[in-house]
Write a protein that binds this DNA or RNA. Structure first.
Lengths: 206, 206
DNA sequence: ACTTTTGTTAACCATTTGGTTAAACCATGA
DNA sequence: TCATGGTTTAACCAAATGGTTAACAAAAGT
């Protein structure tokens, strides 16, 4: 019975992920999730006592998956510039795979900062470096030029994430101008982000 | 009676703006809006037949206010570089005034592209230039270097808007690192955006 | 004054929705 | 085989919520 148990639970989680990603905590209906999973609504409450617990599971899963993927930052065998370049690639790659992730996180964080804070604290405890601490260190040792790490982090995350967050807007704008979004555009976007990173982190002459 | 009428209506609209901005179309409760406006729930339906119509009003208002403010792009007496710099300033200024606007638009656009498309078409009809057409023109005349206008637009909007969209995330990150967000940081952010624009639109040697 | 129109409210209604219950199902071990 | 305990379901419930109604209040028109 363990097998079937495990299976149903993961089916529910994956279904919940789909629905929650799309509709958010309040937009999602338990019935939708049950339908998606092909089960009865009451079974959801059997496995996860209530909506919030189910959501917590999905939310926490998303967060830890993200931090896991982004942990390239901790690999001390790679120069900082390289690490940040890879970081941006993985970030974009992650969002290509889960395009709704950013907007999902933002939506839910903005309506429940407390939960987010707790979850992040829990996950980050194991991690040696954040992008911020890495940059501070790099500035100290002179490996990268002096700059405000917070501003750089915000700029970088903006360049990577916003195209996905605001995809509906950009699609509308492009559509309006008869422009097609293509793999080539996608590559160009990544290239422009790399260009930005190099511009900021390389020591270029005034 | 015209006076009182006008007054109540605008009170309702402003209240609805507040609530909708905060909770979104589905998160907002008619009762909340009524409370905020200090009136009976039925009165909402008297002025705006139903939730969607009320929302449309708020949504349309937000959009047209935005486009109005951003129309600096059409002032042909100013060099393109200057126009884009001002554009970014106004964009950030607008979002400082209405921090929830971006996330609000994204949320609602992503769940109702059609409405957005219609509204934008209506507003844009009067406008001569978009940022895109301006850039294309500048590239043709050689006023600015050759670059992909769409990528530039996405980069620029990302740098300006995402800090507001993802404010909860960045706050959490900063809080986590004991960093305070200040006016100085705000200025630095704007400066880094200008730096980006100059980097892209000035003819710099290889 | 009084009638009509506009503005406002309390009470109510139908539907949706998260959650519960009691019974049925089914694999397993005694 | 049948008792046991985890799994699943249909039916149900209470609260929330968008929307309606009918009656009342207040101006405006006559």
């Amino acid at each position: 019975m363990k097998l079937k148990d495990q299976n149903t639970e993961s089916i529910i989680l994956e279904s919940a992920r789909l629905i929650f990603m799309d509709k958010g905590l309040y937009g999602a209906r338990m019935q939708d999730i049950a339908n998606q999973a092909g089960i009865n609504k009451a079974l959801l409450h059997y496995y996860f006592r209530n909506k919030e617990r189910l959501f917590d599971e999905v939310f926490g899963g998303a967060l830890s998956k993200y931090f896991q993927k982004m942990d390239i930052i901790s690999d001390e065998s790679i120069p900082i510039l390289e690490r940040v370049l890879t970081y941006s690639e993985r970030f974009v790659g992650f969002l290509s795979e889960y395009p709704q992730m950013s907007i999902f996180l933002i939506k839910e964080i903005s309506s429940n900062q407390a939960l987010f804070h707790i979850k992040v604290q829990g996950i980050k405890k194991n991690k040696k470096y954040s992008l911020l601490s890495l940059m501070s260190q790099g500035i100290e040792t002179g490996e990268i030029p002096t700059l405000d790490p917070v501003i750089f982090l915000i700029n970088l995350h903006s360049l990577c994430a916003y195209p996905f967050v605001a995809a509906p807007i950009f699609n509308a704008i492009c559509q309006n101008s008869g422009i097609q979004w293509s793999d080539e555009k996608h590559q160009k976007l990544l290239y422009s982000i790399h260009e930005f990173i190099r511009f900021k982190l390389s020591k270029h002459p005034l």
